[in-house]
Each structure stands twice: as C-alpha cells, then as structure tokens.
Amino acid sequence: MKTRQGRAKRPRRTAAWKVLAVGLTVSLAGCTGSDGTSAGSAETSASASSSSTASATASSEAGADVVTLAEAFAATLDDEQLSALNQDYTFENAANWSNLPNALLAGGMGGGPGGGSNSTGRVGLQTSTLTDEQWTALEDLLAGATGTAENEGYDEIVQHLEADDYLGDNGGGDDYGRGNFFVAFLGTPSASGTWELQFGGHHLAVSNTYTDGALVGATPSFRGIEPMDEVEVDGDTVIPEQQERAAFAELLASLDDDQLTTATLSDSFNDILLGPGKDWAFPESSEGLVGSDLTDDQKALLLTAIETYVGDLADGDAQTILAQYEDELDETYVAYTGDIAMENNGDYVRIDGPSVWIEFSMQNGVILDGAHPHAVWRDKTADYGGLTS
C-alpha cells in the first residue's frame, strides 16, 4: 500500500461506517448521538421546516458530538501540535482560507480571488505532522461534522484528498497531496461559547462555526477539483464535483429559450466572484431568472443543485438549512454564462437568493489538461457564523 506524507492511505470509509463510528464514540463519551437522518428531497425539507424544535435539538446534539470528537482528536496530539491547532477565534483567522496550495500562499500569492487573507500561509496544524492514530482521530472528527451521503460530506472530503494525492503523483510534486492540508480550532471546542472547526488546503475549505453547541454557520465552503475526469487512486474512484456539475446542467437544460435568455449574464467570468478575500461582498442587486418564474419541476431541480452543497454538512444541520433555502426559492435567482453543460473553461452558473449564494466556474487545468471547477457556497447572513470583522 502506498505511503503518502508519512501515512498509509486506507480505503475510503462508507457512510454506514460513519454512523457506527460516531455512535460508538459518543456512546463511550456518555453523550447523546445525532439523529443520523439524511438530507433529501423537497418533501423531507418541508417536514424539517415544520419541525423547528426537533431540528434545533438535532443540531445541538450534532454540535455536542463534534465537540466530543474534537476533544478526542486534540487528546492524541503533543504540545507542539496543540499549539499549532489551537488558534484565536478572530475574523483574520476565520477568513484565512484559499483554494491555492499552501506553498503558493506562503510564497506571497495571498489576497484576492484565488488567494487568502494571509500571505504567510494557512493557520493551524499541518496534516503532514500527523501519525496514523492522529489521522484516524481527525477523520472521525471530519466525519462527525459533515454529511453521510455518497459523494457528499465526509466522502467528498476523502475524495478531495485523494485527488490532491493524484496531482502530486502526476506532475504537481510535493506541494500537492494530503499532507499539505491544515486543521485549526478557532476558539475552544465547547458546548458553550463560539468556536470554529477549520479544515482546508488546495481546492477545499471547511469552516463550521458553532455557538452554544449548535451550528450557526457552515460557510464560506469552497470546493474545487482537479482532475475533473474520473480517476482511480489506490483502488478508490475519485469523482467529487461531478454531481454538482450534473445538477447545474440538468437545471439549465430544463429552461426554455425565453428562460435561458433571461438567465444569461451579460458579462463573462473566468472565476468565482466571492472567492477568498472577497468576504461580505455580495452584489447589491440580483441578476438572472427569478425562482417565482420557474415551474414546480424546475424549482425541484434548483433545490437539488443547492442540496449538493448543503448536503456536505452533518445531516440534521443540512435539513434545517435546506428547509430555509426552500422557503426562499421564489426569491432566488439563477444566472449563467457560457454553455449550459458546464463542462468547458468559461462556463459559469450562479444561485443567488435572500440567504444562499452559490457559484460554479469552470477553469483551465493547472497541473493537468482539461477544465476543472471552482465553486463556493456562501450565506448572506451566516458566513463565519455572522462574524464580519
């Protein structure tokens, strides 16, 4: 079995394993487990919306699980690692994420689209320092904080790490690979007060903010992938972002000619607008085709596209947020430029609602030939848990 950054790469864990592992961890810690339900259809979202008390309880339980798993991970670290892991809960630290490999950030490419707020690199503990035991504890934590669906949540994170391993092995070199990711606790994991679980590296940013044990923000959430084509890495099939691309393509293909004309943006885009360093910079007015002008079937496709991002969260949290976005569908806009298949450089699509903001932009390859996507999910009130400065 191939070793990467000092750690033997293990097979991807299944959603069933995740539910069992989180349940066992919480049971041993004497805490209540999360509900384990999956984010699903519009019917499920409507049900969650009508049960706000139950959703809030599930969110609090999931938050308690994450605290338990965070403490278990921290318990495996030495003093030097803990010093790197534990960072202050500040806007500067929270906003210090990027789609770039950390070597480029540390080389002074921070700031603006594609860069981060800190040109010295990411904050936190670099994964190359982790032992197998520590990696396992980190995986448990990430699994507890994210969704159980195939190709979403935790499964998608693992595929992102595998994709970066693939880049390292196919022309990227040592600047790419799972050892170049960072994990940070901004503030102290606790059932009271506010803290953020930050995890990221090339093409990936996870930023879950918790207050009094409940998730209060899961954005900015960045996903990109290179290669876009399906590849095999040590026996695993890597296909993250394919379901997102397909969901956007199906939504746009459902529009008639008049709707497509209304949805077409006058400008072209070579990247996302609200990338790293572009916090709280939402456009003052929305463009494109408004949700109230969609058929019921088209609204379902719009919600499905949104769900491919919200579904990256722990399942109970995803239900609650998706129900809110569903309530706002009539006021949510769809806009695009390029080809509706979303397969080539310059193809771009945007979802812009009262709360939700999602962009998907196809880019030229950097290490490999062929286009690949950059995508960001933001929330107009809940980015960084509402922290603005």
Rank of each mutant, 00 (worst) to 15 (best):
G275T: 04
E244D: 15
A300N: 13
E244A: 15
F248Q: 00
A253Y: 05
Q259Y: 05
E287W: 00
L255P: 01
I306T: 15
A249L: 06
A263V: 03
A263S: 05
L260A: 07
P283V: 00
L302I: 11
P240D: 13
G291Q: 04
T295Y: 14
L274E: 00
L252W: 01
R245E: 11
D293Y: 06
D279L: 05
G277H: 06
T261A: 15
G291P: 01
I272P: 02
T264W: 05
E230C: 07
S292A: 09
D258R: 12
D271W: 08
A263D: 01
G235A: 07
P276D: 05
F248P: 00
Q242C: 08
T261G: 14
T262A: 13
D258K: 12
D279T: 02
E250G: 11
L289K: 03
A263W: 00
E244H: 14
A305H: 04
D236Q: 11
D297H: 13
Q259H: 07
A300R: 09
A247C: 09
A249W: 02
L302E: 05
V233F: 10
A247Q: 07
A281G: 02
G275L: 03
A263K: 01
S286A: 13
N270Y: 12
D279Y: 08
A300F: 11
Q243K: 15
D296T: 12
T262I: 14
